[in-house]
Nucleic acid binder design. Structure first.
Length: 207
DNA sequence: TGATTGATGAGCT
DNA sequence: GCTCATCAATCAG
């Protein structure tokens, strides 16, 4: 696979509403370099966290030392820890509009052995089907906070790929595991993709 | 197989 | 002290 054909998405891509970016980023490639060796994966599930009126967003209470990166330029990583795990977000919108996109699940493409090593498991589905799991598989921790994913020299990049996901193949549901704003449909995933987390919870239609 | 719970650490008040 | 955008082990049926 010729990696040089994958160009990082431009910063303008992220300089928009997090709901829009959350859907458009589905199917794009997430590349993580470990000592120059790329781990390639496809983004298959995301959640949007809004810049205003979203009590579930970390930025809701205002700017703190932890959330400072959210208030800056779009196209940078926001990594935070939760219990023993980490979650990877991408900052969207402009300065002082602290929206972001949480990467909830990825489909492994290349670098399977490295991911299995970091996760200490052989089960393919269990490798990256959740925000904490994928960070473990990609060896992402707090030191990966504030990385520019639009730069060709970054350790984490998000790039174009051949596959376009059509609107009808994007499903939306409420976000997972939050206690506030439970009814907003801000989780998005690629229909019928087997690496999406918590598939069974939403297999039945809800009226 | 679905629901519940305990491990666990950082950030905020 | 309490909260929390998680996960894996455990238990009930």
């Amino acid at each position: 696979m010729g990696l040089q054909e994958f160009k990082p998405l431009h910063r303008d891509f992220y300089d928009r509403d997090p709901v829009f970016v959350s859907q458009q980023i589905l199917g794009k490639y997430l590349i993580r370099y470990i000592n120059k060796t790329p781990i390639v994966s496809k983004i298959v599930e995301t959640e949007a966290y809004l810049s205003a009126n979203d009590p579930a967003a970390h930025s809701f209470i205002g700017k703190t030392a932890r959330t400072e990166i959210l208030f800056g330029e779009p196209g940078f990583t926001y990594v935070f820890s939760l219990h023993r795990y980490f979650c990877l977000n991408i900052v969207t919108e402009g300065i002082n509009k602290p929206g972001c996109v949480l990467i909830r699940a990825i489909e492994p493409i290349e670098g399977l052995e490295l991911m299995k090593h970091f996760r200490n498991t052989k089960n393919l589905y269990n490798l990256t089907s959740g925000p904490g799991k994928l960070c473990q598989a990609l060896n992402i921790n707090k030191s990966m906070n504030g990385i520019d994913v639009t730069s060709k020299t970054s350790l984490i990049q998000i790039t174009h790929c051949g596959e376009l996901i059509s609107k009808k193949d994007i499903c939306s549901t409420p976000r997972i595991g939050i206690s506030k704003a439970k009814n907003e449909l801000l989780r998005f995933y690629i229909k019928n993709n087997s690496f999406v987390s918590k598939i069974k919870n939403y297999s039945a239609a809800k009226s």
